[in-house]
């Protein structure tokens, strides 16, 4: 399974710069998530890799070979669409066999490969069904089998789980991880769901306004966000100006800092670095959310279950480790 390289990939529609000099190297067998809000250019980036959209500038390489001029039908990439794009007039088996038919794979070999692919996505026995007879999760699996059966150089997934309900989405996340591991394939997935990205990806690339703001393993981008956008998009955070922190915590030279809500501890009044008051408290079972009134403004705080509690209106102390303050680029 070869690596995928995006070099200076750029796409312009008229005056609008949708994707701006994206550079990414996806290693062999790696699962990379392109994460960002809608309209950030992540889908356009994926479409350029697939070959459906022509880059204004830049290069796509598969295993080192420039495929920018190769038509999408010859790139040999497996694509899974948000709508699944199953052929409604073909049975499950015909859908999965389509790519093999295009490659003129002999009938007997095609049949066994289709059976293997359906077994991998646990749909054996469904061969003769039509897409409209399948649930959303099953359609999703057919789409995966259809993309994988052609033994693609890499797998491209465009918001593959966004049409599923919450419970199915969790199941399919596990399934996707298993399939990715079993197939050992390089995969690029586009999503706007940060939870999905952190659950699935080896590395996350966070896009905003056509630019990649940060790339790294989920833990790294979550714990050490490089920009205010990344800190805010990946989970909730408290954004603090350097000026406000003077005298409270030894801050470095960065102008803005991020402090994750779960890094704050509620203590007895008079303890900790800050004094405050609980303005809102929301109990969520495994954790409790607090909004605190402090000299730094409203701070957002998450406490695990069993960490005691404070009621609304109560005066509290607030403690944190200076090491949990993360510097942000302007």
């Amino acid at each position: 399974m070869p690596e995928v390289a995006l070099e200076n990939l750029t796409r312009r529609y008229g005056a609008q710069l949708v994707v701006d000099r994206v550079n990414l190297l996806v290693a062999e067998g790696e699962f990379l998530c392109l994460l960002g809000p809608s309209g950030c250019g992540k889908t356009t980036t994926l479409q350029m890799v697939a070959g459906f959209v022509e880059p204004t500038l830049g290069t796509v390489r598969l295993a080192g070979r420039d495929v920018s001029q190769v038509p999408p039908a010859r790139r040999g990439l497996g694509v899974v669409f948000q709508s699944y794009a199953l052929f409604p007039h073909m049975s499950v088996a015909e859908n999965v066999a389509f790519g093999l038919a295009m490659r003129r794979v002999p009938r007997a070999e095609a049949a066994s490969r289709v059976a293997d692919a359906l077994a991998m996505v646990r749909l054996s026995g469904m061969e003769q069904r039509y897409p409209r007879q399948l649930s959303g999760g099953q359609q999703q699996r057919v789409a995966l089998a259809r993309a994988l059966v052609i033994r693609p150089q890499a797998l491209l997934l465009d918001e593959p789980l966004s049409n599923l309900d919450a419970k199915l989405r969790d199941e399919m996340q596990l399934e996707l991880r298993r399939i990715h591991r079993d197939a050992g394939i390089t995969a690029i997935m586009v999503t706007h769901d940060q939870g999905e990205a952190m659950a699935l990806a080896d590395r996350i690339a966070i896009m905003n306004a056509g630019v990649i703001e940060q790339v790294g393993p989920p833990e790294a981008v979550y714990d050490q966000p490089a920009t205010a956008f990344v800190a805010g998009f990946l989970g909730r955070t408290n954004l603090l100006d350097a000026a406000m922190l003077r005298g409270i915590a030894p801050a470095g030279t960065a102008p803005r800092w991020s402090l994750r809500p779960e890094r704050l501890r509620i203590t007895a009044p008079g303890e900790g670095q800050l004094a405050g008051r609980v303005s809102t408290r929301v109990f969520q079972g495994s954790q409790t959310l607090y909004e605190l009134d402090t000299p730094l403004g409203a701070l957002f705080c998450v406490q695990g279950a069993g960490s005691g509690g404070a009621s609304e209106g109560q005066a509290v102390g607030i403690a944190f480790d200076a090491a949990d303050l993360r510097p942000l680029a302007a």
């Binding site: 039908a73 010859r74 669409f81 794009a85 052929f87 490659r103 259809r146």
Partner: peptide
């Protein structure tokens, strides 16, 4: 759905 055409193309059609 225009994605059906794209899907077919990505499969080599």
């Amino acid at each position: 759905d225009p994605r059906l055409g794209q899907a077919a193309v990505s499969l080599g059609a």
